[in-house]
Measured scan of single mutants.
Amino acid sequence: LRQRHVACLARSERGLGFSIAGGKGSTPYRAGDAGIFVSRIAEGGAAHRAGTLQVGDRVLSINGVDVTEARHDHAVSLLTAASPTIALLLEREAGGP
């Protein structure tokens, strides 16, 4: 079961505080899956403080732009754009009992 949710992050002077992996033109985060995933969350960064991202979340869109088939460098450029806030649509595998 997959759950979707939106995370809104305000960029700090240190950026957004998370890294992505995967996407076309880069090493897959999961074998056989060209999706883009949250690969790291920086301690004390914007994403960590927001508490809405988890490592392993699939990134579906960035500020309304679909990145499900995107190249890695395109997703990075969307994240590093000048916008002071970033809205992410994420998909998470629902774990637990």
Rank of each mutant, 00 (worst) to 15 (best):
L1Y: 10
R2A: 08
R2P: 04
R2N: 06
R4Q: 10
H5D: 05
V6W: 13
V6P: 02
V6H: 08
A7Y: 07
A7P: 01
A7F: 07
C8H: 15
C8N: 15
L9T: 03
S12E: 15
E13V: 07
G15F: 03
G17A: 04
G17Y: 02
G17C: 06
I20A: 02
I20P: 00
A21H: 06
A21W: 04
G22T: 00
G23K: 01
G23T: 00
G25F: 07
S26P: 03
S26H: 10
P28H: 10
R30S: 08
A31F: 15
A31V: 15
G32S: 09
G32E: 12
D33P: 03
D33T: 11
A34P: 10
G35A: 06
G35R: 06
F37G: 00
F37H: 04
V38Y: 00
V38T: 01
S39F: 01
S39I: 03
R40W: 13
R40Q: 15
R40S: 14
E43Q: 09
G44T: 09
G44H: 10
A46H: 07
A47C: 08
H48K: 09
H48G: 08
R49W: 08
R49F: 08
R49G: 10
A50F: 06
A50E: 15
L53Q: 01
L53G: 01
L53V: 15
L53C: 04
Q54S: 09
Q54E: 12
G56D: 05
G56L: 00
I62K: 01
N63S: 04
N63T: 01
E69N: 13
A70Q: 05
R71D: 12
H72V: 08
H72P: 05
H72S: 05
H72L: 13
H74G: 05
A75F: 03
A75V: 09
A75L: 00
S77A: 14
L78N: 02
L79R: 00
L79E: 03
L79G: 02
L79P: 01
A81C: 13
S83I: 11
S83K: 14
P84L: 04
P84R: 08
P84V: 06
T85I: 07
A87E: 15
A87F: 13
L88A: 03
L89Q: 13
L90E: 01
L90S: 02
E91A: 04
E93M: 09
A94N: 13
A94I: 12
G95Q: 11
G95P: 13
P97Y: 10
